[in-house]
Amino acid sequence: MRLLKQLVPVALVAFAGGAIVGAVQGNPLLTLLLGVATAVLAVFVYARVVVRWSERRAPVEAATQGLLHGVASGPALLTGGGFGPEGNLYAVVFGLLLTVVFMWLARRRGNVVPFRRGATATLPQ
């Protein structure tokens, strides 16, 4: 239930801002300004309304601690260690698997240019 209390006010601001931005689609400067204003208003609503209402704490406390405070625990092989979560074993293995699949699809479709041995690069004169 707390998720809904946090999501609904910010989503309402985002949907209203998106509708307003969509209405002035022909003017790039006005679209940019209204988009930035929507983002600022969404952060303001989250900080002032949502944090105070659903978490019952001051917005300043949320700002000093950050919105998310994640702590990874476990072996470095699974958490990524000092490199971060993108360096863990699962991310590397799935990244390699996706690379193999995409290379196989590209080769099957004929989008891979073969490597020519012995070819030398020449600069245009």
Rank of each mutant, 00 (worst) to 15 (best):
G87H: 00
N111P: 00
L105T: 13
G118L: 07
T99N: 02
T79H: 03
R108Q: 14
V113S: 14
V112G: 08
T99E: 10
G80L: 03
A106W: 00
R108N: 10
M103G: 12
N88I: 00
G118K: 12
G118V: 00
F83N: 10
L89A: 15
G110Y: 00
L105H: 07
R117L: 07
L105E: 13
A106D: 14
P85S: 14
F83Q: 13
V92Q: 08
T79P: 05
L105I: 14
G81V: 00
G81K: 05
G82A: 15
V112R: 00
F115M: 13
F83D: 14
R107F: 09
L96D: 03
G110R: 06
G81H: 01
F94A: 08
G87N: 02
G84N: 05
L98H: 09
V93H: 05
V92T: 08
L98C: 12
V93F: 02
L98G: 13
Y90A: 13
A106N: 10
T79W: 02
F83G: 08
L89M: 10
L89H: 01
G110W: 06
P85F: 04
N88P: 03
P114R: 14
L97M: 13
V92C: 09
F83W: 02
P114Y: 06
V101S: 02
R108Y: 04
T79A: 04
W104C: 11
T79C: 02
V93G: 08
L97H: 02
G81E: 09
R107D: 10
V112P: 06
V112K: 03
L97I: 11
G84H: 09
N111F: 05
L96S: 11
F94M: 11
R116M: 05
G80K: 06
V113W: 01
G84V: 00
G82H: 14
Y90V: 08
R117I: 09
F102P: 04
L96I: 06
V101R: 10
G81F: 06
T79N: 02
P114D: 05
L97Q: 10
V100D: 05
L98M: 15
G110I: 07
Y90H: 06
R116D: 07
G95L: 00
G84K: 03
F94C: 06
G82M: 12
V92R: 12
R109G: 13
L98Y: 04
M103F: 08
E86R: 10
M103D: 15
L89Y: 03
G84Y: 04
V113N: 12
